[in-house]
Amino acid sequence: MSKLLFFLPEQASSVAGPVDLFFFFMVAVSVFFSALIAVLLVFFAIRYHQSGAATAPAAGVVVGPEPEHAHAQGAMLLEIVWTVIPLGLVLVMFAWSTSLYFTLVRPPADAVAMYAVGKQWMWKFQHPEGQREINELHVPLGQAVKLTMSSEDVIHSFFVPAFRVKQDVVPGRYTQVWFRPTRVGRYHLFCAEYCGTQHSGMIGWVEVMKPEDYQAWLSGAAGGAPRQTLAQAGEQLFTERACVTCHPESGEGRGPSLGGLPGAAVTLEGGGTVVADDGYLRESILNPAAKIVAGFQPLMPTFQGQLSEEQLVQLLAYIKSLGVKPAAEAPAPPATKD
């Protein structure tokens, strides 16, 4: 039903329609110019056909006076026309597609944070409520989802054709993709960046469910609810790895307090500030000496190689769940706070 044309994937996200619209505009422009060139080519080739004109000079052909100079001005006009019109057209394409792109890459404020890890050759997902999935991602209809993604090995790429979104998943950093599903159903998830032997097997499904079905799924329809939410798992790690000794909630530790940190501007030792986004938090855990917060010593050991990508995500979720110190106001639900 949603398949208007056989080469059109289903439209199952809020951006699918606008992307297709732009695509059809591009197709229309392309068809017009291809047809124009093809028609002219065929017409000229037939209209002015003179067999053997190059190989055997036709006798008695009278060639008129040199036309070049007489038409020099007309020629210049033509050159200008066929430079300026395409130029105008590509600028329209540029403006339209760029505004589309900013919609595609900027998650809306109400987006729920979920996490993906790519590895040879599977996709692992974590929900804020603690559910973990492999090669399947359940999401509620109509709810914007922001996926923060990382890779355990090589570059992968998260691609859901029905959503018209794609984003590379790069080792050593976070990348983000967001979508708002608009149609219930199961949609292909592909790895779009070549990643080795089973690249074409690194596929899965995104299952869009009605919100009530999703809630039922969350609360255990698929084998029981998890013991901990993502943030709770992170809190446990935070204690087990003794992070808490230097970063206590009181804010009196040897390291800076983490309450209210995500998204805030941090002043660094030696001048400069940095926004504490996911990438900064990741770097500060794995390579703490890279950026030292003003007023602190570079004492923290590195956790490079000691935390899995999933554990990192749990720590991130925990840090995001911390309220602004010292519990001045009730922390917002972890899922929507970002």
Partner: peptide, 14 residues
């Protein structure tokens, strides 16, 4: 041109 267009290349690339 389809691939030069940011918003469309996201879907088409690779």
């Amino acid at each position: 041109l389809f691939l030069a267009a940011l918003g469309l290349d996201v879907h088409l690339t690779d």
